[in-house]
Design a protein around this nucleic acid. Sequence first.
RNA 1: GGGAGCAUAGCUCAGUUGGUUUAGAGCAUCUCGUUUACACCGAGAGGGUCCGCGGUUCGAGCCCGUGUGCUCCCA
Length: 870
Amino acid sequence: MELSKNFIPGEVETKWYQHWIDQGYFHSVPNDKPAYTVVIPPPNVTGVLHMGHCLNNTIQDILVRRARMQGMNPCWVPGTDHASIATEAKVVAMLRERGIAKSSLSREEFLSYAWEWKEKYGGIILQQLRKMGCSLDWERTSFTMDPDYYETVIKVFIDLYKKGKIYRGKRMINWDVKAKTALSDEEVIHKEVNGKMYHIRYKLDLPGEEFITIATVRPETIFGDTAICVHPKDPRYTHLVGKHAFVPMINRRIPIIADDYIEIEFGTGALKVTPAHDINDFQLGQKHGLEVIDTMNDDGTMNDAAPMYIGKDRIEVRKIIAKDLEASGNLVKIEDYVNQVGFSERTDAIVEPRLSLQWWVDMKQLAAPALEKVMSDEIHFHPAKFKNVYRHWMENIKDWCISRQLWWGHRIPAWYDQEGNVYVEASLEKVHASFPETVGKALYQDADCLDTWFSSWLWPIEVFKGMSNPNNAEINYYYPTSTLVTAPEIIFFWVARMIMAGEEYMGKIPFKDVYFTGIVRDKQGRKMSKSLGNSPDLLGLIDQYGADAVRFGIMIASPAGNDLLFDESTLEQGRNFNSKLWNATKLLKMWEPRQSNEGPIPEDATFAMDWFQAKLSATQLEVDEMLKTFRLSEALKTIYGLIWDDYCSWYLEWIKPGFEQPIHAKVFEKSIAFYDDLLQLLHPFMPFITEEIHHMLKTQTQDLCVQELAPIGKVDESVLHAGVLLKNVISTLRDARNKNQIKPKDAIDVHIQSENNAAYQTIQNILAKQVNAKTVAYTNAPIGSSIVVALEKDKFYLVSDQAIDTVGLKVNLLKDLAHQKGFLESVEKKLANEKFVQNAKPEVIAIEQKKKADALARIQTIEESLAQLG
RNA sequence: GGGAGCAUAGCUCAGUUGGUUUAGAGCAUCUCGUUUACACCGAGAGGGUCCGCGGUUCGAGCCCGUGUGCUCCCA
């Protein structure tokens, strides 16, 4: 069979993915094997695959495929999140394009559009995950608004309400003026913005023309001012405390109060207090019993509290009012000022602090056990540094605002009567049943939906119907899940809350390990974003390089716990690795028909096989340890080196028969077996090409995907050391050839001067092949007119037809000598230090003494070689 | 303002309880090479006052203090 020049991924990927699905390899049912459960962080139902998903899901797939090979019963559950704000925003935008305003639709009409849209576009992302090779159990695909999931969310709301952990209250919330909804603190992104600081003077209610000047970045909110506050010890203002001033333009009279919250140095030292529009002012207002005047509508425009600007957007008003204040003589000055402004994560609108009646979860009690589980390492965080972040947040936890003024989501199960009484039940019928006094009354349901995360926090439980069908066989088998792989950005949104829900509703942690991936950034370290246009098209990259290469590229550049600087060159490296694997296959296939059973296995081939076996076992152990500790990138690097360097560059060259010569059948079979082991080791990282080659090597009884790992063999350390020696000799002699400009084609004669010839005899054929030597001989005395090379205590004389560059040789030897002498000196100094000899452990001293002996021997060898050069 | 983390080769990173040859890998760079697996390749080389300063120790990339720079989280 003639193989194509290079590996062509496209067809192979489609073929194997379909085959794996057809065989049902990814579908899990409870059995007597240990479960390895992973629930996907559900992407937004409207989402498309980006680099972050690629990293995150590649990692999950590696863990899941590895578990499958380890004989566990892996179950990786796919699904999507209804993502209320993001999805509703997309549907609104879609409707607007069709000329339909959301406000013209009833709730039911809007939701039918939303569902239609979800059915059409939702889940594209799940298709894309197949392209990457993810071994998800598609029969378990879940959605946070599936009927039983929906009921569960409602049930949890009612339960927490009845336990007194959910309440309704008027609080300052973050208001998204574009989406017209409340946001949780976590949904607000603070950015530095270049703004202005306006100094505005307020006329005092005193005889004469006296003023007090305040500094603010938000002059448009002056209509909501209900006090001016100064520091009680600020000598500039003490005489004014208790007096009054007038708000410019509307001339409303407000008190001047004192509070040590004020920073004397900041601005003018006098603060305008606007309780309706600033969280700190609100608290100050509460403390001092100030009035709250809301000056804005829910879309961010001014209301009738700001009579001259009604209906104008607050940002626009900021510019206009500056001019108007100037005209009225109240504007003292404007300075440039950089401040932090909150933006909505979803709509990027500037968030307005707003006083509003919302639903809240009391977090204090929920947080305590969830904190403990992580601090005690019952749940392991990888990397552990995130424990600090988690603790800090949990210890300062604030109540969770869970109502959103949206239609797409789980509608809050609360009904109100005309008197404003609240009845919380799953349906109107149940309200009537539980509260007979409501029968016959006009009740209306809360119009709001719940925060998306109020459903996501039940994900590891409800994908197995753990709430809607408690104690079913699946939840009992799969829960707690094994590993959660997610971004550190959602540690509070999601991870912390899942732990709380797990404790509250299952009495158990939801997962044992949490692996936090890095954030994917571009080469310059910038976050990937639509606006920067630095987010590559993932499917395009898969087409270009192949899914395996993309997986390789993203994993090799992804150190545990660090951000990943995405650079297409690592994908190239992945593609090159594909080629390497492909070419090694070609070589083996070329040898296949040349097998021979005649005679014993050559001694050098035996050595090569023993050595690679030892190397393979040693590396398998290493990789095992790395994967256990989630050092995936390191594991991949190690496997990469094992295949490319040890197997291809060394092993295959060592056993390679001469031109058109036969290969011993036993050696061939062993080489195929080694290669298959390597493919298996690599499979979780690069599933497609490994499965393909696995089947090319020979007729297989089993797919690689489900092949269990064989126990790891014993590591023969002495063979390993012999291999290191051989490699060193080869490299050293090749270097000498290079430095002396001996052409690769010119064969040389090698004479070895060693006290241990036996060590070289088994490997001399390999040595000859690798350094292109006609002969390898042993000697007790220097060989004239040769190139001398020293390695440890042994000397090698290379005889060639080429002229010898004795000058160059000498330079190198002298350099080496200087290095060795310097080293010897440092060792001797250490050994001469009495305190060292007294305090250091005996092993350490022994090592130092060996270092000294080795260095002395080496110096002697070099000096002899130099003497011979004359 | 509060908290956390990071600083090792041009780049991205390893470096496990302080001692395992005066620091390792991959990529990039340079030199040589088209010898039937592979130029998406092979062989080889160069490249680092381990951020500065101070301390503990017989001994510090690793521990302590301090300074500087960067990143993230919270307000």
